[in-house]
Nucleic acid binder design. Structure first.
Lengths: 185, 185
DNA sequence: CCCGGCTATATCAACATTGATATAGTTTTC
DNA sequence: GAAAACTATATCAATGTTGATATAGCCGGG
């Protein structure tokens, strides 16, 4: 998981409160990583225990008290270490794509409906990311990368929906699968 | 989460044991969804409690006893319901892409190194998926969709690494960010 | 002046996911 | 024939993640 490093990264450009961090993630980093505010507070406490961030409590000037966090030198070092470390492969977790794997059980028109629904969701997501004010610097590049992935999926879904096997009339033939429950080999 | 439906989907084509399901996920569904065996056993128990799968215990013919699961009619209905339901947008969780969002803190050559590392991971993952025996039917299509996404990311990373801003000598200028900790509005 | 919405912190339960460990018979390999 | 790898079930602790809830002051509009 990358949450601690995302927080360190955001705090590197400027000190922020937990609430600010939540907003920054929602507005700028959301396409590549997201987190609920309820995950952020305990994570900040942990980073503090490990000496990667410092906390300064601002007196109740406006509203309730505010906890302003800033990165320490150790925090910067840790961020750097993480950046230069080879990333794990992106985790495959796509509900729409997962549905495609089981289209066998549906009729041809239903299959097309599923693909169209997936495509629609992707189009919506792409529009959402594009319409939001673009982040600055590399955050913007990261967002663009995420959009590229979504667009690739969208084009792919669109193309698959046109394939003859999805056209009414062509039911899939029973599949010959390998390694069933009672295997001989 | 889609794990229960992935299990129902796999059981729809044929009855399987928990172990078989783990293997089928690893071999066939892995690019779109994955799960550890330790997550599968309790999930099967839950599906059984809900009447979506049936369990038949096979006597210790060979090795220890084996629990063979099969879908019920209710299970098939539930799978169908899930398939036709519009999917949530794919969750953005890509460690490599997340790193890109924080390249500001690095020098130009280091930035290129990060992008190249990301690209390398993607190339490896694509090769892994391609070299494995392709699944049958729509599982194969799903895998291809996943590959498309990876390839898009790879092309994007490759292109970004060539951009002039990544070329030695051009440091990013300080960014003007919106909504810092102490905001005026 | 009250209401709704925003800033702000914090905790909780629930669920999802991973990785380690235990057990034990079978099959394959050297 | 012993060791290694595979089949098979199961549980556990730890961690990651989500969604709900509580508190409370501030700000703007009606």
């Amino acid at each position: 998981m990358s949450l601690p490093h995302v927080l360190l990264g955001l705090l590197t450009s400027q000190p922020r409160t937990g609430y600010d961090l939540a907003r920054a993630i929602r507005d700028d980093v959301d396409p590549v990583w997201k987190a609920e505010i309820s995950q952020i507070y305990p994570e900040l406490a942990r980073l503090r225990r490990e000496g990667l961030v410092l906390l300064r409590v601002l007196g109740p000037r406006r509203g309730p008290h505010r906890n302003l966090y800033r990165v320490t030198a150790a925090g910067r070092r840790e961020l750097r270490r993480w950046l230069l470390e080879p990333p794990p492969p992106p985790r495959a977790r796509d509900d729409g794509l997962a549905r495609v794997a089981f289209l066998d059980s549906l009729s041809a028109p239903e299959r097309r409906a599923v693909l169209r629904a997936y495509e629609r969701v992707l189009v919506g997501e792409i529009a959402r990311l594009r319409s939001a004010p673009p982040p600055e610097g590399f955050r913007r590049d990261a967002r663009d990368g995420a959009v590229e992935k979504l667009e690739a999926a969208q084009r792919w879904a669109h193309a698959l929906a046109q394939k003859p096997s999805l056209t009414p009339g062509s039911e899939a033939s029973p599949r010959a699968e390998r390694s069933p429950a009672g295997k001989k080999k």
